[in-house]
Design a protein around this nucleic acid. Structure first.
Length: 577
RNA sequence: GCCGAUGUAGCUCAGAUGGUAGAGCAAACGAUUCGUAAUCGUUAGGUCGGCGGUUCGAUUCCGCCCAUCGGCUCCA
């Protein structure tokens, strides 16, 4: 694999060489290997257009054909600087200036191209056997908005042509599953461009799925000893001053609205409201832990350029909960959240999870001893759950507390972060939260924020892509559709009574008794990914049977209504496909 | 917000170097009664994203705005 990384890195050098050949005045930024490929940043006299990639790619191919050796040179910092000054590579000079004086500086060159780089690289350009330039984008020099924007060219590279082809197939598959596309095709949701960017409209079928997920979510919370709370969408400014959001989260909050001469803010988070409920009465250690969950809709300002379908929006519903507990309880609380999260995610179709622990950053608030206690609780809970292969991001926690994030892998092997379990040492202080301990004194409770799905909108987008719109039976907005073959009285009667029966049992379905050919009706049911087509004609009516055709299958099975009912009930309770 | 691209019928898309636009699917209506992924016909449907400018005339050229797409940055 290190080899592959070297190949990708070398591909980026070849890209830079090709660009310099075509645009001799180009200035080079950075050009690393990344997942699946590489990129290189350039400052160019003109903007690149997609057709330019074809030319650049052709130039790269000829460089590869020349089979130039990639040669490593070691220079002193002074000599390196001289070389970069000679070539006029100002960005590279900046990079070099930041390197320690004592360090030996390495350059890699192939042919007439030479680049400041720590390597390693492939031996010859011919080692780059399978690559493709993908796209052009803007990228700030060193990722800073105050810096000039460079033009970034992305490419993908693999060891073999087959692997490259497989990756391209994966990209195609991802495109087919794009939740924005499927959302339109299945009429699940929309974003109304004239009514505001990043605001989601759930259509009946999408809203139905959402309802199923939310009902399941609520039931499971009650079963797991949570209580539900509901809180307002707006709150007065003192709340956000007290919580600190107006200080550190201001950029993400919308301007206030005036009500009776008071400033009210749309909530970007639910926590201050839950804290108000906590503070509404005196709490004893006997009351703890308190676990309060809410599907709370929040509004956050996101810059226009980052909005993306359901995955990045401006108004969304968090499946939020806050746990208030004593120091003795927190370990078990964390453990329970992890267990609960695993169970919810698994039922919703995600079994491959990975765990990430983030610890105290340099700038943090709260008692260091509490941080340590909390971090230990997180580690212990993970090991109690038998999770040993989690990754640790030292210093990667929020300023107010350490956390565990859980990522899932979808059907295409892509990772998404869903659950997050986060300590908060900031807000309990700021709101002066207390409970009376067994010693009769006031103590500060531990506060844990947690979301299992993250946001309902984002989760739904991921779910659509995971299932490619073919939702399992229990989640399908339309679980079955009865298709009539003709409009004889016997057929229609049998179809209608079947529909009534199944609907009475709580199953979701419709009757397609249009005067259309069966082939068309089947096609439409398939295109809509309806789990079962129940086909009824005179033969079925006479025998009191139903020809059941499962989604994606060509064959049908003749069943009695009782048998269909049993099948459906089984799928519904087991929550499987 | 920034870089680049895009915005034509409900959907997917075509089109004119400035003279107000089409196709397929969907829709409505009619015919067809047809057993496992698309029956046929007719009709209707568009201030060509919005506003302003240039022009005799703008969907086409220019400017601004909005939205979308790919990234940067950021995050649920």
């Amino acid at each position: 694999m290190a080899n592959l990384e070297a190949i990708r890195h070398s591909a980026s050098h070849v890209l830079a060489q090709a660009v310099l050949r075509l645009y001799p005045t180009a200035k080079l930024g950075i050009g690393p290997a990344i997942d699946n490929g590489f990129y290189y940043d350039f400052e160019l006299p003109t903007p690149l257009i997609p057709e330019d990639l074809i030319k650049i790619e052709a130039e790269m191919k000829s460089i590869i054909k020349e089979n130039l050796p990639l040669i490593k040179e070691t220079l002193s910092k002074q000599d390196a600087m001289k070389r970069l000054q000679a070539s006029g590579q100002t960005f590279k000079q900046e990079l070099l200036a930041d390197l320690p004086d004592s360090e030996a500086i390495t350059f890699y060159s192939q042919g007439d191209f030479s680049d400041l780089c720590k390597g390693p690289h492939a031996a010859y350009t011919r080692d780059i056997k399978a690559f493709k330039l993908q796209k052009i984008s803007g990228a700030y020099w060193r990722g800073k908005e105050s810096n000039p924007m460079l033009q970034r060219i992305y490419g993908i590279a693999f060891e073999t042509k087959d692997e490259l082809a497989a990756y391209l197939t994966l990209l195609e598959e991802a495109e087919k599953r794009d939740h924005r596309k499927i959302g339109k095709e299945l009429d699940l949701f929309s974003l109304q461009d004239k009514a505001g960017a990043g605001l989601v409209y759930w259509h009946p079928k999408g809203a139905r799925i959402r309802h199923i997920i939310e009902s399941f979510w609520k039931d499971e919370h009650f079963r797991n000893d949570y209580e539900l709370v509901n809180t307002p969408h707006i709150g007065q400014s003192w709340l956000w001053e007290t919580s600190g959001h107006l200080g550190f989260y201001n950029e993400n909050m919308y301007a206030p609205m005036k009500i009776d001469d008071q400033d009210y803010y749309a909530k970007p988070m639910n926590c201050p409201f839950h804290i108000l409920i906590y503070n509404s009465s005196l709490r004893s250690y006997r009351d703890l832990p308190l676990r309060w969950a809410e599907l709370g809709t929040v509004y956050r300002y996101e810059r226009s350029g980052v909005l993306h379908g359901l995955l990045r929006v401006r108004g969304f519903t968090q499946d939020d909960a806050h746990i208030f507990c004593t120091p003795e309880q927190m370990e078990n609380e964390i453990f329970e959240v992890i267990r609960f999260s695993k169970s919810i995610l698994s039922t919703l179709g995600f079994d491959e999870l990975s765990f990430y622990l983030s610890t105290r950053p340099e700038d943090s608030v709260g008692d260091p001893a509490r941080w340590e206690q909390a971090e230990n609780a997180l580690r212990k809970a993970l090991s109690m759950e038998g999770i040993t292969d989690y990754q640790v991001d030292e210093g990667g926690g929020a300023f107010y507390g350490p956390k565990i994030d859980i990522k899932i892998k979808d059907a295409l092997g892509r990772e998404w972060q869903l659950s997050t379990i986060q300590f908060d040492f900031n807000e309990p202080e700021r709101f002066d939260m207390t409970y009376i301990g067994s010693d009769g004194n006031k103590h500060r409770p531990f506060m844990i924020h947690r979301a299992l799905l993250g946001s309902i909108e984002r989760f739904f987008g991921i779910l659509v892509e995971h299932y490619a719109g073919k939702f399992p039976f229990w989640l399908s907005p339309e679980q079955f559709r009865i298709l009539t073959i003709n409009d004889s009285e016997a057929t229609l009667n049998h179809a209608k009574s079947t529909l009534d029966h199944l609907k009475c049992l709580g199953f979701r379905g419709t009757l397609d008794d249009r005067n259309e050919k069966l082939g068309l009706k089947i096609r439409e049911a398939q295109v809509q990914h309806i789990p079962f087509a129940l086909i009824i004609g005179d033969k079925e009516a006479q025998a009191s049977q139903i020809a059941l055709r499962k989604r994606g299958e060509q064959s049908t099975t003749l069943l009695s209504l009782d048998e269909v009912e049993a099948l459906f009930k089984g799928l519904q309770t087991q929550k499987v496909n």
